[in-house]
């Protein structure tokens, strides 16, 4: 009986996904769901394989990944120092600004995006700007909250030893605020992924978002799903990596009172240097190769004439070089395309 239970426990988490995938395979084949709109899972897998072999999947994935990482790095390097600067050197001002920040956080990036695109185009720099700006808010908020959450007794202890502000930040505030800052970074990643896909759908020659949108436009549905699956995989991997980091930063929390994080396991030791090295290696790899691809794409597109297959006109890649015609094509207009496909 116990053995059965043990097996049950191990298998159960996978049953849901298993059933889901099976349904994905069976329902379209049976005709319950229109196979044109939802190709069976195996077809999608085949599409993934083809795309991978053609190298398209690799190129687009690494371009998207590159954009997210750069955007995220920018956001972190703006938001975290800003948060520390505000909270450490002028906590009263920081408190006053709470109301203003709350108001500004409700300004929808999508409402200003058209303006942004209108004036600056949607070249590489502009995409990165949109991605990083949308991630800045959660990271900034969480940095400030994190600093405020540091136990005041620790600060008092430090002060009693007459530490400099530098030591205060480095040895007390930063480690203390880190868990919450990482939560903010995780939210920032979510926002970045979000805006990345949106930005790529609006104006790019490459990237996973472009791949999905383009597939929809040329009505290559399996390709659409293939791209979609990869976007999900990308998002999930990033999330997992950051969660992994977070387990390390949480390890010192007391057992009680860490309510929402109970499902996050504790890592006792500090991060092993091997892990850090691997991570940095992969990280720089992405930055290098991704940057390479991005550069290729941007220079390539610039030289190509306006191509029906491209669907996103390249003119806007360069700052300010727009006419009214290409602008309409920037924002995917589903209505027009739908009529086309009917």
């Amino acid at each position: 009986m116990e053995r059965i239970n043990k097996i049950k426990v191990k298998i159960l988490p996978y049953i849901g996904i298993f059933c889901f995938l099976n349904l994905w395979e069976i329902l379209p084949r049976l005709g319950v769901v229109d196979a044109q709109f939802l190709p069976p899972f195996s077809t999608v897998c085949l599409a993934i394989q083809t795309l991978w072999q053609d190298g398209i999947l690799y190129t687009n994935t690494i371009i998207s990944l590159w954009r997210v990482l750069i955007g995220l790095l920018l956001a972190i390097f703006i938001a975290v120092p800003l948060g520390f600067f505000l909270e450490v050197f002028s906590p009263e001002i920081s408190k006053r600004l709470d109301g203003l920040f709350n108001l500004l956080s409700h300004v929808n990036p999508f409402s200003l995006a058209p303006l942004f695109i209108l004036l600056f185009g949607i070249g590489e720099k502009e995409k990165l700007a949109i991605i990083s700006l949308s991630a800045v808010w959660p990271i900034l908020f969480h940095t400030i909250t994190g600093i405020r959450s540091v136990n005041p007794i620790l600060i008092k202890t430090g002060r009693s030893m007459n530490i400099s502000t530098g030591v205060l930040i480095k040895d007390i505030l930063f480690p203390g605020a880190l868990p919450i800052i990482i939560t903010g970074i995780r939210l920032g990643v979510q926002m970045s992924m979000f805006m990345l896909i949106a930005a790529e759908m609006m104006g790019a020659g490459a990237g996973l978002g472009w791949l999905v949108h383009n597939s929809a436009m040329v009505y290559q549905i399996p390709r659409l799903y293939a791209g979609g699956v990869f976007i999900i995989l990308l998002g999930m991997s990033l999330n997992k990596i950051i969660l992994w980091f977070q387990t390390y930063s949480w390890f010192w929390q007391e057992r009680t009172g860490v309510a929402e994080q109970t499902h996050i396991k504790r890592r006792h030791k500090q991060v092993s240097s091997v892990a850090v090295f691997c991570f940095m290696f992969i990280f720089s790899g992405v930055l290098f190769f991704g940057g390479n691809e991005v550069h290729k794409i941007n220079t390539q597109v610039r030289t190509l004439p306006m191509n029906h297959d491209m669907h996103q006109h390249s003119a806007g890649m360069e700052k300010g070089a727009e006419t009214t015609e290409p602008q309409k094509a920037y924002v995917p207009n589903f209505k027009a395309d739908e009529d086309k496909h009917k």
Binding site: L154, S160, D171
Partner: peptide, 16 residues
């Protein structure tokens, strides 16, 4: 404050 005086506080002031 200075390092010629040390303080031990109520509650746990260890860096976790």
């Amino acid at each position: 404050p200075a390092l010629d005086r040390g303080i031990v506080l109520q509650g746990y002031a260890l860096f976790p």
